[in-house]
Design a protein around this nucleic acid. Structure first.
Lengths: 246, 246
DNA sequence: CGTGTGGTTGAACAATGTCAAGCTCTGTGG
DNA sequence: CCACAGAGCTTGACATTGTTCAACCACACG
């Protein structure tokens, strides 16, 4: 973890400038500023929430990539979804007490920290923000719906193509590429997200690379032909234009 | 659809009597009564929300079973989850405009109907209920998390055993058995929920039946040995004791 | 008595997993 | 500077799991 630095004020939140995010009223911004209790910088690979643990905090992704996962008794891991800037992390754990999934940093990340005990104040005093929180929870649900469709019914090639396309899109929308358009994942991450073995994942990725749709680089990939990738993926599944920010 | 009958008042809601559900204050109950605009009775097999359509309503399950699903272009269907009494249906569609999943009645059902446009009033005037709505959304998310782990990483036998066990538990908690402890699903439903072919599902179910864990009856199953079923399923994954009701 | 839906089974085949090996980096300690 | 170890990627051969095709049965309903 890097040393603590002075914290970003919500009024200066870089996300406000992005088209993807809805804007706040001045009142909401100042409330959020008081609601935010700090920031946390984590290195790639660190654990944000441990599987099975209760967290005293809710986080918001300021920059970087995370993923949520569940591990089976025998050690097999399933990645549930990836989180990008603007996503809420730990809402489930906050509302329902401990839950059985972990969260890990995929890249170096900066998170805004909120106290879970004060979430109810947000509901009490700023119902539009409360509505936005619910919106984000539903949007998360939508992502999982898509994931289930992929895991249950799509072929290896489609599944992987769709995942890569989604990651690429999220990176674009939130300006979250690593250097030179690279999304920072390993093939293990892809395998664990798709429910495939590492070997099978590798073969599928090599296939996509040989067809010129992507390049696999060290610990990441670059999309070479987004349209063809989207075609292979099969499903249009457009993401909402704009989303609330908390 | 059956003929409309006089509507259940929230103050007489049968769910209030069940241990699983939290209770409301008198104020909340009366607000919900004014919020509820009607009831709808549907026969087994009817569509509640069409895939890709926007719905003007939010529903609450008063009695019966539903399931949410997504269909691929080529007609393959993935069942995302099953809904039992107390579950919220259509929240996603309400908050995010149209979404790409459908909802269908598995058994005859009775749903309470709310106007989606008035949801914001609930957030404005009853923040505890708003909090409960978010709780339910998160709990839905948790169910999907489990589903993804199953689809991605569990063997056929485990997957099916766990699903049956969960369905059985939900039926118990909400008193939603069909006659004589039967959960009303076909093998097609199981197959579509598990991402398996019908044939493979049949073989897996026969296996469980031969081991004496379940009986398969016409259009449904009965759990014969819940503990062994749970053991085969492998994962404890206890459900929360109590949940809010809206 | 057809006809349709739901369930059951076998056999051939396709998709995916497992095992085993080797390759290329990068970082670290001698 | 070199040797070595570990992480990530790649590939082949073979085992297992799951799908497809093609029947057939039982029952409910007109």
């Amino acid at each position: 973890m890097s040393k603590n630095r002075s914290t970003t004020l919500c009024r200066n939140c870089p996300h406000q400038a992005l088209d993807v995010f809805c804007t706040h009223t001045a009142d909401e911004t100042s409330f959020l500023e008081s609601f935010k209790i700090g920031e946390i910088n984590l290195d790639a690979g660190s654990t944000v929430i441990e599987q099975g643990a209760a967290s005293a905090h809710i986080f918001t992704v300021l920059s970087g990539w995370l993923f949520r996962y569940k591990t089976l008794e025998d050690g097999q891991r399933q990645i549930l979804n990836f989180a990008v800037p603007g996503d809420l992390v730990g809402l489930q754990a906050s509302l329902m007490g401990k839950v059985d999934h972990g969260v890990e940093a995929l890249s170096d990340v900066v998170l805004c920290v909120f106290e879970k005990n004060r979430l109810i104040e947000l509901y009490q005093s700023h119902f539009h923000l409360a509505f936005d929180v619910t919106w984000l929870a539903c949007s998360q649900e939508r992502v999982l719906d898509d994931g289930m469709l992929s895991l249950g019914r799509r072929s290896a090639k489609q599944r992987v193509a769709l995942l890569l396309w989604n990651l690429h899109q999220n990176a674009q929308r939130t300006h979250s590429f690593e250097s030179r358009d690279i999304v920072p994942v390993t093939q293990s991450h892809i395998a664990d997200a798709m429910g495939f073995s590492l070997v099978h994942t590798n073969r599928t990725l090599r296939g996509l690379a040989r067809s010129g749709l992507i390049d696999w680089v060290d610990r990441g990939f670059r999309v070479r032909d987004a349209d063809s990738l989207h075609t292979v993926a099969g499903s249009p599944a457009p993401n909402p234009k704009q989303r609330p920010l908390v």
